[in-house]
Nucleic acid binder design. Structure first.
Lengths: 117, 117
DNA sequence: TCTATATTTCGATTACTATAGAAATATAGA
DNA sequence: TCTATATTTCTATAGTAATCGAAATATAGA
Protein backbone atom coordinates (compact mmCIF):
# COMPACT_ATOMS: atom_id res chain seq x y z
CA UNK A 1 0.00 0.00 0.00
CA UNK A 2 1.24 3.42 -0.91
CA UNK A 3 2.08 5.90 1.78
CA UNK A 4 -0.69 8.40 2.47
CA UNK A 5 -0.48 11.57 0.43
CA UNK A 6 1.31 14.24 2.34
CA UNK A 7 0.59 17.90 2.02
CA UNK A 8 4.07 18.32 0.58
CA UNK A 9 3.51 15.92 -2.29
CA UNK A 10 4.11 18.16 -5.32
CA UNK A 11 1.44 16.46 -7.39
CA UNK A 12 -1.12 16.95 -4.65
CA UNK A 13 -0.27 20.62 -4.24
CA UNK A 14 -0.68 21.14 -7.97
CA UNK A 15 -3.98 19.28 -7.98
CA UNK A 16 -5.26 21.30 -5.04
CA UNK A 17 -4.12 24.57 -6.59
CA UNK A 18 -5.86 23.66 -9.84
CA UNK A 19 -9.06 22.90 -7.95
CA UNK A 20 -8.87 26.15 -6.00
CA UNK A 21 -8.37 27.95 -9.28
CA UNK A 22 -11.29 26.13 -10.85
CA UNK A 23 -13.55 27.38 -8.06
CA UNK A 24 -11.91 30.78 -8.18
CA UNK A 25 -14.31 32.59 -10.46
CA UNK A 26 -17.71 33.93 -9.54
CA UNK A 27 -19.67 31.86 -12.08
CA UNK A 28 -17.97 28.61 -11.17
CA UNK A 29 -18.18 29.18 -7.44
CA UNK A 30 -21.91 29.81 -7.89
CA UNK A 31 -22.20 26.64 -9.94
CA UNK A 32 -20.56 24.63 -7.14
CA UNK A 33 -22.78 26.29 -4.57
CA UNK A 34 -25.87 25.51 -6.62
CA UNK A 35 -24.85 21.90 -7.20
CA UNK A 36 -24.18 21.44 -3.49
CA UNK A 37 -27.64 22.75 -2.72
CA UNK A 38 -29.03 20.07 -5.03
CA UNK A 39 -26.71 17.34 -3.79
CA UNK A 40 -26.48 14.46 -4.46
CA UNK A 41 -28.86 14.36 -7.46
CA UNK A 42 -27.41 17.49 -8.94
CA UNK A 43 -28.93 19.52 -11.73
CA UNK A 44 -29.42 19.46 -15.46
CA UNK A 45 -27.25 21.84 -17.51
CA UNK A 46 -30.23 23.84 -18.69
CA UNK A 47 -31.46 24.44 -15.16
CA UNK A 48 -28.03 25.60 -14.04
CA UNK A 49 -27.93 28.04 -16.92
CA UNK A 50 -31.42 29.31 -16.25
CA UNK A 51 -30.79 29.73 -12.55
CA UNK A 52 -27.46 31.51 -12.96
CA UNK A 53 -28.26 33.26 -16.26
CA UNK A 54 -25.20 31.96 -18.06
CA UNK A 55 -25.29 31.41 -21.87
CA UNK A 56 -25.08 27.75 -22.77
CA UNK A 57 -21.72 27.87 -24.51
CA UNK A 58 -20.13 29.76 -21.64
CA UNK A 59 -21.69 27.42 -19.13
CA UNK A 60 -20.43 24.42 -21.06
CA UNK A 61 -16.86 25.69 -20.76
CA UNK A 62 -17.22 26.26 -17.04
CA UNK A 63 -18.66 22.80 -16.50
CA UNK A 64 -15.86 21.29 -18.56
CA UNK A 65 -13.30 22.98 -16.36
CA UNK A 66 -14.97 21.79 -13.16
CA UNK A 67 -15.20 18.30 -14.65
CA UNK A 68 -11.52 18.32 -15.64
CA UNK A 69 -10.61 19.06 -12.03
CA UNK A 70 -12.97 16.35 -10.76
CA UNK A 71 -15.00 18.91 -8.85
CA UNK A 72 -18.17 17.69 -10.53
CA UNK A 73 -19.40 14.43 -11.98
CA UNK A 74 -21.83 13.94 -14.86
CA UNK A 75 -24.35 11.32 -15.75
CA UNK A 76 -26.61 11.18 -18.75
CA UNK A 77 -30.33 10.53 -18.56
CA UNK A 78 -31.70 10.58 -22.04
CA UNK A 79 -31.15 13.97 -23.56
CA UNK A 80 -30.22 15.48 -20.22
CA UNK A 81 -26.85 15.69 -18.53
CA UNK A 82 -27.00 15.80 -14.76
CA UNK A 83 -24.07 17.49 -13.05
CA UNK A 84 -23.34 16.85 -9.38
CA UNK A 85 -20.74 18.15 -6.95
CA UNK A 86 -18.02 15.58 -6.31
CA UNK A 87 -17.84 15.33 -2.56
CA UNK A 88 -14.59 13.36 -2.61
CA UNK A 89 -12.67 16.13 -4.32
CA UNK A 90 -14.25 18.73 -2.07
CA UNK A 91 -13.36 16.65 0.95
CA UNK A 92 -9.74 16.48 -0.09
CA UNK A 93 -9.66 20.23 -0.62
CA UNK A 94 -11.44 21.10 2.59
CA UNK A 95 -9.39 18.54 4.50
CA UNK A 96 -6.18 20.07 3.19
CA UNK A 97 -7.16 23.62 4.12
CA UNK A 98 -8.41 22.51 7.50
CA UNK A 99 -5.17 20.64 8.20
CA UNK A 100 -2.97 23.51 7.09
CA UNK A 101 -4.89 26.13 9.06
CA UNK A 102 -6.11 24.24 12.12
CA UNK A 103 -4.11 21.06 12.64
CA UNK A 104 -0.60 21.15 11.25
CA UNK A 105 -0.48 24.79 12.24
CA UNK A 106 -2.66 26.67 14.67
CA UNK A 107 -3.58 29.72 12.64
CA UNK A 108 -7.30 29.13 13.19
CA UNK A 109 -9.00 27.43 16.11
CA UNK A 110 -11.09 24.50 14.87
CA UNK A 111 -14.21 25.63 16.69
CA UNK A 112 -14.22 28.84 14.68
CA UNK A 113 -14.88 26.73 11.59
CA UNK A 114 -16.88 23.88 13.00
CA UNK A 115 -19.25 25.34 15.55
CA UNK A 116 -19.92 28.98 15.11
CA UNK A 117 -22.82 30.84 13.41
CA UNK B 1 -25.16 46.59 13.43
CA UNK B 2 -25.17 45.20 9.95
CA UNK B 3 -26.72 41.85 9.27
CA UNK B 4 -24.22 39.00 9.07
CA UNK B 5 -22.91 38.32 5.58
CA UNK B 6 -24.81 35.51 3.94
CA UNK B 7 -23.30 33.07 1.53
CA UNK B 8 -25.54 34.53 -1.17
CA UNK B 9 -24.21 38.05 -0.79
CA UNK B 10 -22.82 38.75 -4.29
CA UNK B 11 -19.92 40.78 -2.95
CA UNK B 12 -18.92 37.97 -0.62
CA UNK B 13 -19.06 35.36 -3.36
CA UNK B 14 -16.84 37.52 -5.54
CA UNK B 15 -14.41 38.08 -2.66
CA UNK B 16 -14.27 34.37 -1.89
CA UNK B 17 -13.82 33.47 -5.55
CA UNK B 18 -10.99 35.99 -5.82
CA UNK B 19 -9.32 34.48 -2.77
CA UNK B 20 -9.70 30.95 -4.07
CA UNK B 21 -8.18 32.12 -7.32
CA UNK B 22 -5.34 33.83 -5.49
CA UNK B 23 -4.47 30.54 -3.80
CA UNK B 24 -5.07 28.65 -7.02
CA UNK B 25 -1.54 28.50 -8.37
CA UNK B 26 1.22 26.22 -7.19
CA UNK B 27 3.64 28.98 -6.17
CA UNK B 28 1.03 30.94 -4.24
CA UNK B 29 -0.43 27.89 -2.53
CA UNK B 30 3.09 26.97 -1.44
CA UNK B 31 3.64 30.51 -0.19
CA UNK B 32 0.49 30.28 1.92
CA UNK B 33 1.51 26.87 3.21
CA UNK B 34 4.94 28.17 4.12
CA UNK B 35 3.56 31.26 5.85
CA UNK B 36 1.13 29.12 7.81
CA UNK B 37 4.00 26.94 8.98
CA UNK B 38 5.69 30.09 10.27
CA UNK B 39 2.55 31.58 11.72
CA UNK B 40 2.04 34.07 13.28
CA UNK B 41 5.47 35.72 12.89
CA UNK B 42 5.61 34.95 9.21
CA UNK B 43 8.67 35.19 7.03
CA UNK B 44 10.84 37.74 5.30
CA UNK B 45 10.48 38.01 1.52
CA UNK B 46 14.01 36.85 0.90
CA UNK B 47 13.53 33.70 2.94
CA UNK B 48 10.33 32.85 1.11
CA UNK B 49 12.15 33.26 -2.19
CA UNK B 50 15.08 31.15 -1.05
CA UNK B 51 12.89 28.40 0.34
CA UNK B 52 10.63 28.19 -2.71
CA UNK B 53 13.25 29.15 -5.30
CA UNK B 54 11.21 31.95 -6.81
CA UNK B 55 12.97 34.96 -8.39
CA UNK B 56 12.38 38.14 -6.43
CA UNK B 57 10.35 39.99 -9.04
CA UNK B 58 8.07 37.03 -9.60
CA UNK B 59 7.71 36.53 -5.87
CA UNK B 60 6.89 40.17 -5.41
CA UNK B 61 3.99 39.89 -7.82
CA UNK B 62 2.66 36.81 -6.09
CA UNK B 63 2.88 38.49 -2.70
CA UNK B 64 1.13 41.55 -4.08
CA UNK B 65 -1.72 39.39 -5.31
CA UNK B 66 -2.07 37.63 -1.97
CA UNK B 67 -1.94 40.99 -0.22
CA UNK B 68 -4.60 42.46 -2.51
CA UNK B 69 -6.92 39.63 -1.52
CA UNK B 70 -6.10 40.07 2.17
CA UNK B 71 -4.71 36.56 2.37
CA UNK B 72 -1.48 37.90 3.83
CA UNK B 73 -0.45 40.87 5.89
CA UNK B 74 2.87 42.69 5.87
CA UNK B 75 4.88 44.56 8.43
CA UNK B 76 8.19 46.28 7.99
CA UNK B 77 11.13 45.80 10.32
CA UNK B 78 13.97 47.89 9.08
CA UNK B 79 14.94 46.78 5.62
CA UNK B 80 12.91 43.61 5.91
CA UNK B 81 9.28 43.00 5.06
CA UNK B 82 7.65 40.25 7.07
CA UNK B 83 4.71 38.53 5.43
CA UNK B 84 2.21 36.55 7.49
CA UNK B 85 -0.88 34.52 6.64
CA UNK B 86 -4.07 36.40 7.49
CA UNK B 87 -6.05 33.98 9.58
CA UNK B 88 -9.23 36.07 9.38
CA UNK B 89 -9.45 35.80 5.62
CA UNK B 90 -8.59 32.12 5.76
CA UNK B 91 -11.23 31.61 8.41
CA UNK B 92 -13.86 33.25 6.25
CA UNK B 93 -12.87 31.06 3.32
CA UNK B 94 -12.69 27.84 5.28
CA UNK B 95 -15.90 28.69 7.11
CA UNK B 96 -17.69 29.27 3.82
CA UNK B 97 -16.52 25.99 2.31
CA UNK B 98 -17.31 24.09 5.47
CA UNK B 99 -20.79 25.57 5.62
CA UNK B 100 -21.54 24.88 1.97
CA UNK B 101 -20.27 21.30 2.11
CA UNK B 102 -21.09 20.19 5.64
CA UNK B 103 -23.72 22.42 7.20
CA UNK B 104 -26.05 24.09 4.71
CA UNK B 105 -25.83 20.94 2.65
CA UNK B 106 -24.72 17.47 3.68
CA UNK B 107 -22.31 16.64 0.90
CA UNK B 108 -19.52 15.84 3.37
CA UNK B 109 -19.81 14.58 6.91
CA UNK B 110 -18.09 17.01 9.30
CA UNK B 111 -16.02 14.30 10.97
CA UNK B 112 -14.37 13.51 7.66
CA UNK B 113 -12.81 16.96 7.80
CA UNK B 114 -12.40 17.50 11.48
CA UNK B 115 -11.20 14.25 12.94
CA UNK B 116 -9.52 12.03 10.45
CA UNK B 117 -5.85 11.62 9.60
C1' DT C 1 -37.01 9.35 -40.81
C1' DC C 2 -38.23 13.77 -39.26
C1' DT C 3 -38.58 17.06 -35.60
C1' DA C 4 -37.75 19.12 -31.24
C1' DT C 5 -34.90 19.89 -27.49
C1' DA C 6 -30.43 19.56 -24.83
C1' DT C 7 -25.82 20.26 -24.89
C1' DT C 8 -21.37 20.80 -26.87
C1' DT C 9 -18.02 22.41 -30.21
C1' DC C 10 -16.34 25.95 -33.32
C1' DG C 11 -14.42 30.33 -34.09
C1' DA C 12 -13.23 34.64 -32.79
C1' DT C 13 -12.30 38.33 -29.60
C1' DT C 14 -10.71 40.33 -25.57
C1' DA C 15 -8.60 40.40 -21.46
C1' DC C 16 -6.07 38.67 -17.88
C1' DT C 17 -1.92 36.04 -15.70
C1' DA C 18 2.66 34.24 -14.89
C1' DT C 19 7.21 34.91 -15.64
C1' DA C 20 11.67 37.20 -14.96
C1' DG C 21 15.81 40.34 -16.06
C1' DA C 22 17.05 45.00 -15.31
C1' DA C 23 16.44 49.24 -13.13
C1' DA C 24 14.67 51.84 -9.34
C1' DT C 25 13.62 52.56 -4.54
C1' DA C 26 14.04 52.00 0.55
C1' DT C 27 16.41 51.30 4.73
C1' DA C 28 20.42 50.65 7.80
C1' DG C 29 24.89 51.31 9.06
C1' DA C 30 29.65 52.94 8.44
C1' DT D 1 27.07 60.91 2.42
C1' DC D 2 28.33 56.54 0.67
C1' DT D 3 27.64 51.62 0.49
C1' DA D 4 25.33 47.32 0.97
C1' DT D 5 21.31 44.77 1.11
C1' DA D 6 16.16 44.05 0.67
C1' DT D 7 12.38 44.59 -2.01
C1' DT D 8 9.63 46.55 -5.53
C1' DT D 9 8.64 48.54 -10.02
C1' DC D 10 9.46 48.68 -14.94
C1' DT D 11 9.19 46.46 -19.26
C1' DA D 12 8.40 42.87 -22.13
C1' DT D 13 6.77 38.32 -23.59
C1' DA D 14 4.16 34.21 -23.81
C1' DG D 15 0.59 31.71 -22.42
C1' DT D 16 -3.91 31.03 -20.56
C1' DA D 17 -8.74 32.09 -19.67
C1' DA D 18 -13.50 34.16 -20.12
C1' DT D 19 -16.95 35.24 -23.14
C1' DC D 20 -20.68 34.13 -26.42
C1' DG D 21 -23.13 33.69 -31.10
C1' DA D 22 -23.53 30.29 -34.51
C1' DA D 23 -23.12 25.78 -36.02
C1' DA D 24 -22.79 20.97 -34.96
C1' DT D 25 -24.02 16.86 -32.41
C1' DA D 26 -26.89 13.80 -29.46
C1' DT D 27 -31.03 11.82 -27.88
C1' DA D 28 -36.06 10.97 -27.63
C1' DG D 29 -40.33 10.60 -29.50
C1' DA D 30 -43.74 10.98 -33.18
Amino acid sequence: MAAPKKAQDPAQIIRLADRLSAMGTEPRLRIMQLLLSAHPEGLVVGDIGTELEIPSSTLSHHLEKLKNEQLVTVRREGTFLWYSANSEALEELLGFLYAECCTRNKAIEPQRIVCCK
